[in-house]
C-alpha cells in the first residue's frame, strides 16, 4: 500500500538514522520512488544533520579550568561527605559498636573487683551507654565529618581541620616525616611522645602485592639512640583478626599505626611476614602519595 506524504513525515527521522524496521523502510522507499517532494525533504534534513555534526563548535575549557573544578569539588565533598544511607549507617554502626564494646570492657574491668550488686552495675552500664549514644551522635556530625581524598589532593600533606591534633603536633609530625624522607638518619618521632594518642597513616595503595588486604603495623620504639633500627620491626598480619586495634573509621583500609606496641598481638596472631631490620629504610623510601592525611584517635575515648 502506498503511503501519503503526511505518513512519511513521521518516519523521516528514523529513516535517516537507519532505525526503521524493514517493513517501514520498504514503505518509505516505495513512496520516494514516486514523490520528488519527499525526496528533497529527506535530502535536506540529512544535509542539515550532517552540517550539525560537522560544523557545530563544541564548548571547550582549559586544563586550568578543570584543575580549579577538581579543587572545588574536593572541598565540596569534604564539607558534604557521603549522605547515602548505607554509607552513613555503616560508619555510624561501626563507630557505635566500637565505642560501646570499649566502654563496656572498661566498665567491667573497673568494677570487677568491687562488691557492687547486679542492679547497680546494670544501672551504671545503662547510664554509660545512653550517655555515650547521645554524645556520640552529636559529636559525629560536628567533629568527625567523613573524609574524602581525591587522587593527588592529599599527597601526604597534613590538611587543616582534618584531625583533632593541634598545630604543634602537626608541625612536629610533618617535620618528622620530612626528616625521614630527606635524610637517611633516623630521628625520634615527636608523635611517640604522646602516649595517649595513636597516629594512623592510611595507605593509598598497598606497600607490595603480598601485603594487600593485610594490616601493617610499624613498631617504633621510643629509644632511638641507636640508628640501627634493631628495636623496630615491620609486622604484617593476616587480615584482619585484630579488629580491636583498628580504627572504626578505617575498617576497609590498610593502616600504619605509629608507635603501636604490638607484643600482645604478636603473641596471639600469626604473622605473615616479619622483618626485624630495614623497615626504616622502607619507610624513608615510601612514596609520599602512599601516605595520606594522618588521623589521630584518643585511646581513652576509643
Amino acid at each position: 500500500m502506498k503511503l501519503k506524504c503526511n505518513a512519511i513525515q513521521s518516519l523521516i527521522s528514523d529513516y535517516i538514522d537507519d532505525t526503521l524496521n524493514k517493513n517501514d523502510v520498504a514503505k518509505v522507499e516505495t513512496h520516494l520512488q514516486f514523490c520528488t517532494k519527499c525526496q528533497r525533504e529527506i535530502a535536506a534534513i540529512r544535509k542539515t544533520r550532517d552540517l550539525v555534526i560537522d560544523y557545530y563548535v563544541e564548548p571547550v575549557a582549559s586544563e586550568n579550568y578543570f584543575h580549579q573544578f577538581e579543587v572545588e569539588l574536593h572541598r565540596s565533598l569534604q564539607k558534604k561527605g557521603p549522605t547515602s544511607l548505607n554509607q552513613r549507617l555503616k560508619t555510624s554502626a561501626a563507630q557505635f559498636l566500637w565505642c560501646l564494646l570499649t566502654q563496656l570492657r572498661q566498665s567491667i574491668s573497673k568494677y570487677n573487683d568491687t562488691r557492687m550488686n547486679t542492679l547497680t552495675v546494670g544501672a551504671l552500664l545503662l547510664l554509660i551507654v545512653s550517655g555515650f549514644v547521645a554524645t556520640h551522635f552529636l559529636n559525629q556530625e560536628i567533629s568527625h565529618p567523613p573524609k574524602v581524598y581525591l587522587n593527588g589532593a592529599a599527597g601526604g600533606q597534613i590538611a587543616d581541620g582534618e584531625t583533632d591534633i593541634d598545630d604543634q603536633q602537626k608541625k612536629s609530625l610533618h617535620q618528622h616525616r620530612t626528616n625521614w624522607k630527606d635524610s637517611s638518619e633516623v630521628s625520634s618521632p615527636a608523635l611517640t611522645a604522646n602516649v595517649e594518642k595513636e597516629g594512623y597513616w592510611r595507605l593509598s595503595q598497598p606497600l607490595a602485592n603480598d601485603t594487600e588486604e593485610h594490616i601493617i603495623f610499624i613498631h617504633i620504639s621510643n629509644d632511638r639512640s641507636a640508628p640501627g633500627d634493631t628495636d623496630s620491626e615491620v609486622v604484617v598480619y593476616e587480615e584482619p583478626t585484630i579488629l580491636e586495634r583498628k580504627s572504626p573509621l578505617q575498617e576497609d583500609y590498610v593502616a600504619l599505626p605509629l608507635d603501636l606496641h604490638v607484643d600482645p598481638f604478636s603473641e596471639k596472631h600469626p604473622r605473615k611476614q616479619r622483618k626485624l631490620s630495614g623497615f626504616v629504610v622502607k619507610l624513608i623510601h615510601l612514596p609520599t602519595e602512599m601516605l595520606t592525611i594522618p588521623e589521630f584517635y584518643d585511646l581513652i575515648k576509643l
Partner: peptide, 25 residues
C-alpha cells in the same frame, strides 16, 4: 559503593569533559 572515596577521582577524570560539554551546551 563500598565507601572508598579515592575511587571517585579516576571517575571524575574520565567523565569531567563529557559532563562539562553537556553542562555548557
Amino acid at each position: 559503593r563500598e565507601g572508598d572515596e579515592t575511587a571517585l577521582a579516576p571517575l571524575v577524570e574520565k567523565y569531567k569533559r563529557m559532563v562539562h560539554r553537556l553542562a555548557m551546551q
